[in-house]
């Protein structure tokens, strides 16, 4: 079919909501960087649309920044019904007070029922201040969002101790209900390029930031992450083949090198690198066990890991009981091939 014909037909059905009233809507505070919408903003719009559907409400986006007007197009394609744009050079780079002042004024004029932000540095600085100033409740780092049986209160799950379990929380009496959503926890919506709209420009005179950036912190290094808090651990055991190669793998993956008690006995690692209930207990996002059999104490100390890869020549090795990915092979060969596969072989 002729694409221009399709364009014509769709243009007739194009929805525009430039005049939709903002009161009681579900709002998303948009975040952009380098001329692109932040993925978490699109994810938030997906969540907002689901909520708005059940609430019988419109979805709005507040888009603040310098030269951001054109990005409103993406917001309409993601499914918002209205966009309020504040475009001013005083709004980039981000600082709290200018953004806060504009959003407080906006929400005073069009009081939202729900406001979603990304759980990012910017969302984390803005959301509590907005909630405090407008008398709203705030739930940060939501990983699931739904409405309770009364149909107007948002319930959200937040991870406790980094996701050991979740607490379901709500702010039934508070309006607006503010939420920051965890980046990557929700699917982004389909961008429908036939959806269009005309954003409403907001006249602003941004206030002065209260915090001044003096300059780069030359030479500042944050303290090294302790093994117990590392998010990626590469652990070496006596069956690892070439320990130096495992160390290179840890470096290439930007992970922490560790090992089991056997590796320490064999002099492959230091005492403070031993993963064992009598040594260090770890709960990283990724645990890579190379040539570790996995005695009881070792397994108990690493079973909090979210994702475990085990490489060992013996298919009966107990470490495999705790592994998500089991590789029965000579660790030395696999590690060498792995260094090539991740592009770090020398």
């Amino acid at each position: 079919m002729d694409a221009s014909y399709l364009d014509l037909v769709m243009a007739q059905q194009e929805e525009t909501f430039e005049d939709a009233e903002g009161g009681g809507g579900v709002w998303v505070v948009a975040e952009s960087a380098g001329g692109e919408m932040a993925p978490v903003t699109l994810e938030a719009i997906g969540v907002a649309r689901t909520l708005a559907e059940s609430l019988g409400a419109y979805v709005y986006a507040a888009l603040l920044g310098d030269g951001v007007r054109l990005l409103a197009e993406t917001l309409y394609q993601a499914g918002v019904n209205g966009v309020r744009v504040a475009d001013h050079q005083g709004l980039s780079p981000f600082s709290l007070e200018p953004h806060l002042g504009i959003l407080v004024d906006l929400f005073a004029e069009e009081p939202p029922e729900v406001v979603l932000l990304g759980a990012t540095e910017i969302g984390g600085a803005l959301a509590p201040r907005l909630a405090q100033q407008l008398g709203g409740g705030l739930i940060e780092h939501a990983t699931t969002v739904s409405l309770d049986p009364t149909g107007r209160t948002v319930e959200a799950a937040i991870p406790i101790y980094g996701g050991e379990y979740f607490e379901v929380v709500a702010c039934p009496e508070a309006r607006p209900q503010f939420l920051t959503i965890e980046p990557g926890a929700f699917a982004g919506p389909f961008l429908d390029e036939y959806r269009r709209g005309e954003p409403t420009m907001v006249e602003v005179e941004p206030s002065e930031p209260a915090v001044r950036v003096v300059g780069l912190a030359e030479g500042f290094r944050p303290p090294e992450v302790r093994l117990a808090e590392a998010s990626l651990v590469v652990a070496v055991g006596r069956q690892a083949g070439d320990p130096a190669q495992v160390e290179r793998l840890a470096e290439a993956l930007k992970g922490r090198l560790a090992g089991d008690r056997g590796a320490w006995d064999a002099g492959l690692i230091e005492a403070d690198q031993v993963v064992d209930v009598r040594g260090t207990v770890v709960s990283p996002d990724v645990y890579l066990a190379v040539g570790i059999r996995g005695d009881t104490f070792h397994r108990a100390a690493m079973e909090g890991a979210a994702f475990v890869v085990a490489i060992h020549p013996d298919r009966e090795a107990p470490i495999f009981e705790k592994a998500d990915l089991c590789v029965v092979a000579e660790p030395g060969e696999v590690v060498e091939a792995l260094l090539t596969a991740i592009g770090s072989a020398d």
Binding site: G136, G137, I139, T144, D148, E155, A157, G163, Y165, F166, E167, V168, V169, A170, C171, P172, E173, A174, V308, A310, F320, E321, K322, A323, D324, L325, C326, V327, V328, A329, E333, V334, A337, T340, A341
Partner: peptide, 24 residues
């Protein structure tokens, strides 16, 4: 303003997947 409405838990850990094939 915040109210606790219960707990949720992550799904149980699935049995691991065996990866087979050549070393590469």
């Amino acid at each position: 303003l915040l109210e606790n409405r219960g707990r949720d838990f992550p799904p149980e850990r699935e049995l691991g997947v065996r990866v087979e094939g050549t070393t590469e």
